[in-house]
Simulated scan of single mutants.
Amino acid sequence: MNKCLLLFLLLPLCASALEPEPRQTWFTGTYTDLCYNKDGSDLLGMELMIIPSSAGYSVVVQIAEGGAPYTTVVPITIQGKTASFTLPFGGPYGGMRFEGKLSRTSLAIKWQSGEQETLKRGPSYWQ
């Protein structure tokens, strides 16, 4: 077989092997305890969605303490089973840092104030 023809046939296989695999690890997904509060007719809780990003990983953060949730996207650091992120300055939670312990079924997140919440892994409140 002609070497040029063989190279032509193998080139598409080599190119697809060089394409980066989408990064998805055991900790990516949605963790939530958002719920509707009938007494106040509003939302309470927190929802985090950890996703791969160009900078490593990012987290979509929603915090509801009545009314529409505060929402932002920030980088998240994952080291083993520990996750941490800081909210941007200028919002209602400006500069607040969160740390948590990840498992396959939940994320135990600690607010900077020391308060702790356990967010269950699963579908978003909005689904």
Rank of each mutant, 00 (worst) to 15 (best):
N2S: 14
K3M: 03
K3H: 03
K3V: 01
K3E: 01
K3R: 10
C4Q: 09
L6T: 06
L6K: 07
L6H: 02
F8T: 04
L10T: 04
L10P: 01
P12D: 08
L13K: 03
L13A: 15
C14N: 06
A15T: 13
A15C: 15
S16Q: 15
A17F: 06
A17G: 14
E19P: 00
P20V: 06
E21D: 10
R23F: 09
R23P: 00
T25Q: 10
W26D: 13
G29R: 03
T32A: 05
Y36W: 15
Y36Q: 04
N37G: 04
D39H: 05
D39W: 03
G45Q: 07
I50N: 02
P52K: 09
P52M: 07
A55Y: 13
A55V: 15
G56E: 06
V60G: 00
V60H: 01
V60S: 00
I63P: 00
A64K: 06
G66N: 03
A68L: 07
T71Q: 13
T71F: 09
T72F: 06
P75R: 08
T77E: 13
T77G: 05
I78A: 03
G80F: 11
T82N: 12
A83K: 02
A83I: 03
F85S: 02
T86R: 11
L87D: 07
P88A: 10
F89G: 08
G90T: 12
G90D: 12
G94Q: 14
G94I: 15
M96N: 09
M96H: 03
F98A: 00
K101M: 05
K101A: 08
K101L: 05
S103C: 06
R104Q: 02
R104L: 00
S106Q: 12
L107N: 00
A108L: 10
A108C: 06
I109D: 01
K110S: 15
W111F: 12
Q112Y: 07
Q112G: 00
G114D: 10
G114V: 15
E115L: 13
E115G: 04
Q116S: 12
E117R: 15
E117T: 07
L119E: 05
R121L: 01
G122D: 13
G122H: 09
P123N: 11
P123F: 01
Q127A: 13
